[in-house]
């Protein structure tokens, strides 16, 4: 190995638990996911509590274990209408900034505030599934409901999870999400801002699904979780008499 190639050192392993200020690497290494890691002089430093993620052997990042939702263009979010303006609604998307949904976007046509009342369409407390159309540092995030499966939510239950757990609840290639939906028969929409919309065939199955999601939240940092969740759901179904035990296998 030539001298140029060995100009860096990584002090941690993938999935190590780190805290703000921990030095992860030194030298010619890339900071993978700002702001969860930063480059300070020659060092790559973690800025949050999280698990180390090393890629390509020369990019180091941290997956945060704690966190709040920070809007990103293209994200799907579940929002709750908080305020009604003249030509737009202000929507709580569990972020440091409120989402803005314009009347013209919702109605798909120009809107005349003199003739129509926005509260007819969406009122305070209503739930919507939307996409973040645009967001930059100068204005609040702009939402859109133009698209498949976007718009007002009329039925189902919303639960809130730590936004940093969303990737785990979806899983690699949706593996975890598939386990949840196939084992419970529920319809599950996981939004990036840590809200989950569930529609289940029965109250029992809804209870089991919620317990499973809470378990993923708690154990997000462990391995083999997908299988454990599958087993957990099965156990719960037996416990609650949803299926008879001799039906297992």
């Amino acid at each position: 190995m030539s001298e140029e190639e060995v100009k860096y050192k990584i002090y941690v392993n993938s999935r190590d638990l780190v805290t703000p200020g921990d030095i992860l690497a030194e030298g010619n290494v890339e900071a993978l996911n700002y702001p969860y890691v930063i480059k300070e002089g020659n060092y790559v430093v973690s800025t949050v509590v999280g698990l180390v993620d090393i890629q390509n052997n020369n990019k180091v990042g941290v997956i945060p274990l704690e966190g709040f939702y920070y809007p990103k263009e293209g994200d799907m979010v579940i929002g709750i209408v908080e305020e009604i303006g003249v030509t737009h609604w202000e929507v709580n998307i569990r972020a440091p900034y409120k989402g803005v949904l314009t009347a013209s976007d919702f109605l798909g046509r120009p809107f005349n505030p003199a003739q129509e009342d926005l509260s007819k369409y969406l009122n305070v407390g209503d739930v919507i599934i939307a996409k973040i159309e645009s967001f930059d540092r100068t204005r609040d995030p702009l939402l859109t409901v133009k698209g498949k499966d976007l718009g007002k939510v009329t039925e189902g239950t919303i639960i809130e999870v730590d936004p940093s757990r969303v990737p785990r609840i979806i899983g690699k290639k949706k593996s975890m999400l598939n386990v949840l939906t196939s084992e419970t028969g529920c319809n599950v929409v996981v939004a990036q801002n840590g809200r989950v919309l569930i529609k289940c065939p029965s109250e029992e199955l809804e209870a089991i699904l919620i317990l499973a999601i809470k378990k993923i939240e708690r154990e997000a940092h462990t391995s083999g979780l997908t299988e454990r969740i599958r087993e957990f759901i099965l156990e719960q179904k037996i416990l609650r008499g949803v299926i008879k035990s001799d039906k297992v296998l």
């Binding site: 805290t19 703000p20 200020g21 702001p35 969860y36 930063i38 300070e40 430093v45 800025t47 949050v48 509590v49 945060p64 704690e66 966190g67 709040f68 940093s164």
Partner: peptide, 11 residues
């Protein structure tokens, strides 16, 4: 602050 997930240069 760390518990809230707010990125910090150090504790």
């Amino acid at each position: 602050l760390a518990d809230a997930g707010i990125p910090m240069r150090d504790l």
